[in-house]
Every structure is written in structure tokens, then in C-alpha cells.
């Protein structure tokens, strides 16, 4: 069960109407290493992980949904008053043909999201290593997006999201260490 708080985890400010940037940002919405893939991956894998790391996947999976709505808000604000003509210039003419002003789960190239992006092996180490890789790939994607963007307000939010990927990767790495640990050698702080 979830409780929804009607506010964003980090504020979204947008400098100027820029549908071309929205096209790039959608990579983190419906792309292979995007927030939707991350949320669904963790919240699904957690059922077959050892008890002591299930809570971590619940927490991180939940936070990914908070990031998903941050990305959606950015895309919405960047495109909301764009004319079909402006969308066409930004390379979003084909998006508009199908979805109008709507937001959809696809990547920057318009490829729709697929469950083939995520995995569940039922093996704790294999799954956690996949999660670490996913966080590092998401971090790299945020770096690429910051490099592509000239909107300082958007970059501020993207930097926050990238920092969260770093923290998630750290916690997944710690989860692997927890599962590797021999009970009699456990280090107590």
C-alpha cells in the first residue's frame, strides 16, 4: 500500500518553452534505463530477495515513481504551450500525430517502453548486480541530458536526480555486501 503526497520530491522550474529538450528528457521517462523501468524492476524483484534487503527495494522502487513524476512535470512544462508547428520543429511532429499534447512511455527516439527492458532472475546476487548497473546507467543518462541541456533550472533538477542515482547505487552495493557476509563475521557498528 502507498500513501501519496501531492507534491514533488524536488521542485521543477523551467526557464523557457523548449520542446526539443522535452524530447530528450523523455528518455528517462520511458527509456530502458528510465524511472519507470527502475520502479517496476525493483518493486517486482523484491518478492524473491532475502528478507533483509526487501525493504530497500520497496523504498528505492517507490522513490523512482517520485522521480517519474518529476520527469513528467518537466516534459509537460516544456511542451504545454508549444504549437504543433513548434513541436514539428523540435522533432516531435510524429509524437503529436499519435499522442497530441499527451505524454507517453517511450524513449527519446519514440520507441515504446517494453518489459523486455527489465529482468528478474530470482537470484539475489544477479538481481542486485542488475540494479547497480541500472543505477549507473541512469546516472550516465542524466549526465548526457545535462550535457544536452542549456536550461539552468532543468539542470538543477537533473543534478538532484543524478545524485539520487548515486545514493541508490551505494545502497544496492551495500545490499550485496550484506548478502555476501558470513553470519559469524558480521561487523557491528
Amino acid at each position: 500500500m502507498w500513501i501519496y503526497e501531492k507534491k514533488l520530491q524536488y521542485p521543477v522550474r523551467v526557464g523557457k518553452c523548449n520542446p526539443a529538450l522535452a524530447k530528450y528528457l523523455i528518455e528517462q521517462y520511458g527509456g530502458a534505463d528510465g524511472e519507470l523501468a527502475a520502479a517496476l524492476r525493483y518493486l517486482n524483484q523484491r518478492y524473491t530477495l532475502p528478507n533483509k534487503v526487501i525493504g530497500l527495494l520497496t523504498d528505492i522502487g517507490t522513490e523512482e515513481f517520485a522521480h517519474l513524476e518529476i520527469i513528467a512535470t518537466m516534459v509537460y512544462k516544456l511542451t504545454k504551450d508549444a504549437t504543433p508547428e513548434q513541436l514539428k520543429e523540435a522533432g516531435l511532429g510524429d509524437h503529436y500525430a499519435n499522442h497530441g499534447q499527451g505524454i507517453f512511455y517511450h524513449n527519446a527516439s519514440g520507441v515504446p517502453w517494453t518489459a523486455a527492458y527489465i529482468a528478474a532472475k530470482g537470484d539475489p546476487i544477479a538481481d542486485l548486480y542488475e540494479d547497480i548497473a541500472a543505477e549507473e546507467k541512469a546516472r550516465a543518462t542524466y549526465q548526457n541530458l545535462i550535457n544536452l541541456s542549456d536550461d539552468p533550472d532543468i539542470n538543477d533538477t537533473l543534478r538532484f536526480l543524478r545524485e539520487r542515482e548515486i545514493i541508490h547505487a551505494q545502497r544496492f552495493r551495500e545490499a550485496v555486501e550484506l548478502l555476501k557476509e558470513d553470519r559469524d563475521q558480521k561487523k557491528v557498528f
Binding site: 539542470n155 543534478r159 543524478r162 545524485e163 539520487r164 548515486i166
Partner: peptide, 19 residues
């Protein structure tokens, strides 16, 4: 809340060349 982490040791902001 702004940095994205409470731990200073994990704080690593990324800027593009323009910034």
C-alpha cells in the same frame, strides 16, 4: 533536500562544460 543526499561524502554535482 536540495543536494539529494544528507551525506557530504556522497555529494558529487555534475555540470556541463557551459556551466
Amino acid at each position: 533536500l536540495r543536494a539529494g543526499t544528507i551525506w557530504k561524502a556522497f555529494y558529487d554535482p555534475y555540470y556541463n562544460t557551459l556551466e
